[in-house]
């Protein structure tokens, strides 16, 4: 509750601090425009054309079902990987043996390309939601698991000794000692995993489902409709930016307030 209130209170100042980010996004738009002028609209449509197409899609209501389907799959898979990765990573970090055993397994998971998982998932789950959700889960799980594991393993021994000397009960050991430390490793991992989830879900949809942004991209590809392609890309990336910078980043700032303030 206090976190929510702090988030709302900090929002205006945070948004105001976003001018720099907006400026760099506009630079990207300028580069996009330059490329489209140089190579013509078939290779790269002008940003205005892409945004007009996107607006058309949104206005006609055609875009919403696709976007919600994609968001639902991405966020389901992401939520599962956040829960599983954080909990398992924390537990593995508590034991030396478990962390040593799990490291190579996680490297294997990380090294397996998501497209390979996608092929397997298509065999297992067919054209259902299960395919993109599963692919997202396996692709983002190792990122979060590693973050939680590192966080747990790097807790200062001195602090643990102090906590034992002051007889902190088990629950406080978790909430007052381990979690605040682990969170500073978990948040970057959560943010990285969110990006992964978003990319992987579109790829999975492109190959495996009949709806969602990925499927829409497949259709626009077959029509050679680059303006629509760019419009979908803008929509997906815009959603990712919104989730990351409006939700995760402000929460991270609030949680890590102790770290940032200088003397």
């Amino acid at each position: 509750m206090t976190l929510l209130r702090a988030w709302l209170a900090g929002l205006p100042a945070y948004l105001w601090s976003g001018w720099g980010a907006i400026a760099s996004l506009f630079l990207l738009l300028a580069a996009w425009e330059a490329v489209s002028l140089a190579y013509g609209p078939l290779v790269m449509p002008a940003p205005r054309a892409a945004f007009a197409t996107l607006w058309g899609l949104l206005d006609s209501g055609a875009a919403w079902p696709e976007l919600t389907a994609t968001a639902r799959r991405a966020l389901t898979g992401y939520a599962l990987s956040v829960v599983a990765g954080s909990v398992l990573g924390l537990l593995a970090g508590l034991s030396m043996t478990a962390s040593m055993m799990s490291r190579p397994l996680v490297t294997v998971l990380m090294g397996t390309p998501p497209i390979a998982w996608l092929v397997l998932a298509m065999l297992w789950f067919g054209a259902s939601d299960g395919t993109p959700v599963f692919t997202v889960l396996v692709a983002s799980f190792p990122v979060i698991f590693i973050g939680a594991l590192q966080g747990t393993r790097t807790l200062d021994n001195h602090l643990r000794g102090m906590a034992e000397a002051f007889r902190l009960p088990r629950r406080m050991m978790l909430t007052d000692v381990y979690l605040p430390h682990v969170v500073s490793y978990l948040f970057p991992a959560w943010i990285a995993a969110l990006g992964t989830a978003w990319k992987v879900v579109v790829m999975a949809e492109l190959l495996a489902t009949q709806d969602g942004v990925g499927a829409a991209l497949a259709v626009s590809r077959s029509h050679l409709d680059t303006a629509a392609t760019m419009a979908w890309i803008v929509a997906v990336v815009g959603l990712l930016l919104a989730v990351e910078y409006l939700v995760l980043e402000p929460v991270k700032r609030e949680v890590e307030r102790w770290r940032e303030q200088g003397t």
Binding site: L159, M172, P180, R259
Partner: peptide
């Protein structure tokens, strides 16, 4: 050996909380 994520007051009160 203070907990870096707690204010001085919360650090002092840690054993009371326990």
């Amino acid at each position: 050996r203070l907990l870096p994520w707690k204010t001085a007051l919360d650090n002092i009160a840690l054993s009371l909380k326990a």
